[in-house]
């Protein structure tokens, strides 16, 4: 079944918000687990669209990448 953007987006935001007290950054696999019947590439398209509309942001240590809600979590001074 193809993912509907708005529905998938709401589910992703709800998931991130429900974990907000514990953590602010999530692995890609955390999102594929939300949609067990969908292909990883389809989930990626939703996440990319959410990045492009600036709902989500990438976080990177340099070696690993994660996704988080824009503005969530602690940031260094000057970190956008």
């Amino acid at each position: 079944m193809a993912l509907v953007f708005e529905e998938a987006k709401a589910k992703i935001i709800e998931f991130i918000t429900s974990k907000a007290k514990m953590k602010s950054k999530f692995y890609f696999n955390d999102f594929t687990a939300l949609f067990p019947d969908e292909k990883g590439r389809d989930v990626k398209k939703i996440l990319t669209q959410m990045i492009n509309e600036e709902t989500l942001v990438f976080w990177s240590s340099g070696s690993t990448s994660m996704y988080g809600l824009s503005g969530a979590g602690k940031h260094a001074d000057g970190e956008d």
């Binding site: 990319t48 990045i51 990438f58 976080w59 990177s60 340099g62 940031h75 260094a76 970190e79």
Partner: peptide, 24 residues
Amino acid sequence: WKHGGIVGVFGYGGGVIGRYCDQP
């Protein structure tokens, strides 16, 4: 050096590695 950060160019999730000093 602090560990990682949210920097990059719009739409890209790689290519820029955020480095911040903890003694600015």
